[in-house]
Design a protein around this nucleic acid. Structure first.
Lengths: 240, 240
DNA sequence: GTCTATATACGGATAGAC
DNA sequence: GTCTATCCGTATATAGAC
């Protein structure tokens, strides 16, 4: 339909890099919670954390974290109730660990990629693509984070909100820069940033719908990018 | 910023009409569930249903339907446990009633308003404004429907999905018509419709954020409308 | 029609065997 | 390091008084 504008990296390439750093995140999670998870062979811990987190996401994203019983989790993960409780001290703590995991990995990567671009259009595109790639690679985490945010305690919920606002600020700054440089039209940059976030969110909230229709993350990213350029680029007949 | 294009009706006017028909919905709910709610004075039933639904939405939208105990609901609604169970036969049935309520009221109104317009741009604008007005007037219902859809049984969940697809089809048809009439550019109409839905969803999912920033539903609707026209209207220098 | 009191089951968490 | 068996609180739902 419209000509394909290639992003510096395809999703397939990107995904390899992220899969590797997921392991690092497990290790970081272990380091942060050394009191609860009394020292064990790191290999065992990483293996079991993968089983646990995978099972939690699978069950919770179907019927909700609250509705997931520890017996459900025990069955799905293949670990006994007792074994589970050596990796976390309460169901609530388990919830926190999952939320932190997604945040720490995502924020770092996004900032790095945006910084590599120099033009506002380049930064905007990098932010759109990278965020969508991240939410594709970690779709269950993103979905979980959104749906279960209300179950967090006050402090953790505030961290989640702050993280969301941080993403919005990134888009807002890019738009403002583009306006100052004269390449973007005068639009409310904060409201625009907020709407962009909503558009990106739809990708991981309605993931199965898009999968059923064989829409790839690259197609989606390209369409969003065109959407934004149409809105932000000045009309071609020159009236500002 | 951009000049305000007035929709046939302001939100304030619209809201009056919807508030009236909410009562009709309660009555319809009663009619549909006459077996469970053994015959009582209709006035009493309407009054108590309002209390019950209001309380459910308040508690559930804060901490989730599953986490809301019947004791919570009893306290918040001012009705005893026993009294509650004369209005529904199980917690699950209560969930269904809330979902049906939102759907029946919304779909009818949206279709009517869209049909009143003749041009594709007019229809598009009417659909955007009306959907946003509806989700503003019934924000707690919309939020609840989205967040608790996973807790429904298979049949009810299918009804919810079908309703979502119905909305998407409305937008898709408008876009296709506009393309055939030559007023809209060639874009993937289904994907575009899907993205529009995501943009509209953000309004009720992040309602408190927008409220805090004093963004009104009219401002939001206007911005979305401009967004869509920028994407769908052919470039002004005439290259199709 | 609505309340209080309770039956019955299921939840998270842990103690102690291996 | 992991499992089984169990404690104990809280959940939904209802029976029976008023």
């Amino acid at each position: 339909m419209s000509k394909r504008t290639e992003f510096p990296m395809t999703y397939a390439e990107f995904n390899k890099a992220v899969t590797i750093s997921k392991r690092d995140i497990y290790k970081a999670t272990i380091a942060e919670n050394r009191e609860t998870m009394r020292v064990k062979k790191e290999k065992t811990v990483v293996k079991n954390l993968e089983k646990i987190f995978g099972a939690v996401l699978k069950i919770s994203n179907r019927k909700g974290f609250k509705a997931m019983s520890m017996r459900d989790l025990s069955r799905e993960s293949g670990l006994s109730m007792g074994a589970l409780y050596t990796y976390f001290s309460s169901k609530d703590e388990l919830l926190e660990m999952l939320q932190n995991q997604r945040r720490s990995i995502s924020e770092k990567i996004l900032r790095e990629r945006v910084a590599q671009e120099s033009t506002p259009q380049g930064k905007l595109k990098a932010a759109v693509y990278t965020h969508l790639y991240l939410s594709e690679a970690m779709q269950p985490w993103y979905f979980f984070s959104f749906m279960e945010a209300k179950n967090l305690n006050k402090l953790e919920r505030e961290k989640a909100v702050a993280s969301d606002l941080g993403l919005e600020k990134i888009f807002e700054a890019i738009i403002t820069q583009g306006q100052e440089a004269g390449v973007f039209r005068q639009r409310d940059s904060r409201l625009t940033a907020s709407i962009i976030q909503g558009m990106l969110q739809d990708w991981y909230l309605k993931h199965s719908k898009y999968a059923k229709r064989d829409i790839t993350v690259d197609q989606y990213a390209e369409t969003i990018n065109e959407f934004l350029l149409a809105f932000l680029t000045p009309p071609s007949d020159g009236k500002a």
